[in-house]
Design a binder for these strands. Structure first.
Lengths: 191, 191
DNA sequence: CCTACCGATCGGTAGG
DNA sequence: CCTACCGATCGGTAGG
């Protein structure tokens, strides 16, 4: 009595899985059908096109990260507290939605021009939140006064986004240790 | 009198360009032919298969990074000096070979099992050099004694590898400034 | 490096 | 969600 019929949501999530594993162009509609136990052609009763699937997955990613930004901005306390919220929130999104995060980070460039632009804007906005938290933190003494908020936010996001590439939830480092270790690294460096 | 005939090296470099821009599966042999001013079928007088091209590009990447590791290991002085050599060397490889670096970082997973394993080993070895420099640096006082060389090396490589995604050689930040800013961030953090 | 192909697979549609 | 397709494109080959 397992799974009688697939929903649109099932299709989108399976697409996220395959796009994350094999890439958008490495995934055929027939591959995706097989993953769901149906034919490639049957997918078109759930979505209009393959591109449509990529749009859905990538935009889900954008929404998840945007929610992190909003929640962090609403966090009371110092800029350092808000940065901690950004870091923890970002880690949680990546670890709880690896496939969506992977597709968002690696396959968004395969989007058609129109959708790609919207995602670039969303990404810029998200990075802007990091930047302004860092700038605030320079003002309130949370961070060093000689950092450049622009490059620093990119460095921080580089470390956070790369999690998708190496973090193993079954490995020795649990989520809280990861967040702690990461935060220490970002704030104190290795020196 | 420009370019009469293409060499195997021309083909490989053009392949790197397209693999970097559109991904391995997003690039057809006919696309690549067009890039070089010939037909897709003509490429088979230079290479045996499309996979062959990916192997060549990715293995060139592996060699470039390996050379950085060797040179850094031979650098006299403290572990901090050797880390500086790794950082500068890695940055130079990425900035001087964006297409190769991109393909190495993003498309190696499209390799067939056999070649992929070799690349994973090469990558593990490279990361191991970072790890041992960090461990040495904990011993000689270059770095904090409470860092974990394993996660720290991953964080550092995360920042270095992400350069491919955002650094603009035509932007305001020149190479030396970048290396300096990056090094300060890695060693001192933002706090 | 081209001509002239090959079988396989691609995204997608009509109609049920 | 399936049957039965469609034209286009894919990686690749034989022979020059």
């Amino acid at each position: 009595m397992i799974s009688v019929r697939n929903t649109r949501s099932d299709v989108i999530h399976a697409a996220g899985r395959l796009f994350a594993e094999r890439g958008y162009h490495g995934t055929s509609m027939r591959d995706l059908g097989k993953e769901l136990g149906l034919l490639g052609s049957s997918l078109y009763s759930h979505v209009e096109s393959k591109q449509d699937l990529l749009v859905e997955v990538v935009e889900e990613g954008a929404r998840l990260f945007e929610a992190v930004a909003e929640q962090a901005r609403a966090t009371p306390g110092t800029a350092r507290d808000r940065l901690a919220a950004l870091v923890a929130g970002h880690v949680n999104v990546v670890l709880d939605n690896v496939n969506v995060a992977r597709t968002f980070l690696n396959e968004a460039r395969m989007l058609d021009a129109e959708h790609r632009e919207r995602i670039v804007e969303a990404r810029d906005h998200y990075e802007g939140v990091f930047r302004s938290v860092l700038a605030d933190g320079v003002g309130d003494g949370s961070f060093r006064s000689d950092i450049d908020p622009k490059t620093s936010s990119i460095y921080i996001l580089s470390v956070l986004n790369a999690l998708e590439r190496w973090y193993d939830p079954a490995g020795p480092l649990d989520r809280d240790e990861l967040i702690g270790d990461l935060t220490t690294f970002l704030i104190t460096g290795i020196g």
